[in-house]
């Protein structure tokens, strides 16, 4: 439990940061809130020579609405920035709520949305709701930038498509046709517990019919995943309790959780059933919450 030596850089621009990253390759790491990185370094799981802090790159902070793009969230926004953002509170309270149920207040004050995504942990709380809302991520590298759906960002536990010279700069939630969304986290105590399962949904309901539904699951497969069969099953059908239960059963069948100290595979699957149904019900009845 001793932090090894490293060099520290805090460039003032994205470009400069990417250049440093490109120069050091896998010997460098981006430092945002450090709530994942520092722990790994203290445990000897990572020993980067250089940490490139994002703290002086002001363009990465802030959350705002951009006409034509949607809600743009700077990667360095902390969880509490999400919780307290008037734009998100107005449009997607579900994102604020998801952030609010993470970790504990100390961590929410420093941990960032970018770190939560790039860390690529299956139980991370923000990816499911952002995926359900169709969010895209922008990656800026030494020789250019690209934007891709968050859903295709993850490739496995702690793995993603991001290059060693790339920085996740922003997350964009496009304008929605959905009428409701929510994230339900099932953890083993009220604070400071990682998700046993996390279920996010976004629904488009009109005249009692589910026109469209997106279901994104966390902590039940190597990456956050969509329950596409369950989505298909309910698309275009009238909302009934039975239908939502069926969606839950279907989603439970689609996921592939592991057994670990937080819960058995069997338990996780059943919780996917329960929380898929509950999340759908909540989003249908209450909107973006």
């Amino acid at each position: 439990m001793y932090l090894p030596d490293f060099d520290y850089q805090s460039p003032g621009s994205l470009k400069e940061a990417c250049q440093i990253l490109a120069a050091f390759g896998s010997r460098a790491r981006v430092l945002a809130g450090g709530t994942d990185l520092m722990i790994k370094m203290k445990h000897g799981l990572l020993a980067p020579d250089v940490l490139v802090s994002l703290k002086n790159i002001s363009q990465l902070a802030g959350i705002g609405y951009v006409q034509g793009r949607g809600v743009v969230i700077g990667a360095r926004a902390t969880h509490n920035d999400l919780v307290n953002s008037p734009v998100l509170q107005k449009k997607y309270l579900s994102v604020c709520e998801a952030a609010h149920h993470m970790a504990n207040n100390q961590i929410r004050n420093v941990g960032t949305v970018g770190g939560n995504i790039v860390n690529a942990v299956p139980s991370a709380d923000l990816p499911p709701i952002l995926i359900a809302l169709n969010a895209a991520v922008k990656l800026v590298g030494a020789d250019g930038e690209r934007e891709l759906p968050l859903e295709s960002f993850f490739t496995g536990p702690n793995r993603s498509v991001i290059g060693t010279d790339e920085i996740l700069s922003e997350i964009v939630i496009p304008d929605q046709t959905s009428t409701g969304s929510t994230y339900m986290k099932f953890g083993l105590r009220r604070s400071g517990a990682l998700a046993v399962v996390g279920v996010a949904v976004a629904v488009t309901v009109a005249g009692g019919v589910l026109k469209e539904a997106k279901i994104a699951l966390g902590a039940v497969s190597p990456t956050p995943m969509r329950a596409v069969k369950a989505e298909e099953l309910i698309r275009g059908r009238a909302v009934t309790d039975e239908l939502l239960e069926e969606a839950g059963v279907c989603a439970a069948g689609e996921c592939s959780p592991i057994s670990d100290i937080r819960g058995s595979k069997e338990y996780r699957q059943d919780m996917v059933r329960v929380f898929t149904r509950r999340a759908l019900r909540r989003a249908i009845n209450e909107g973006h919450v």
């Binding site: 504990n104 083993l188 105590r189 009220r190 604070s191 400071g192 517990a193 990682l194 937080r262």
Partner: peptide
């Protein structure tokens, strides 16, 4: 203290 779950104040 993350995975050895003692109750927190809110519990």
């Amino acid at each position: 203290l993350g995975e050895y779950r003692m109750p927190t104040a809110v519990d």
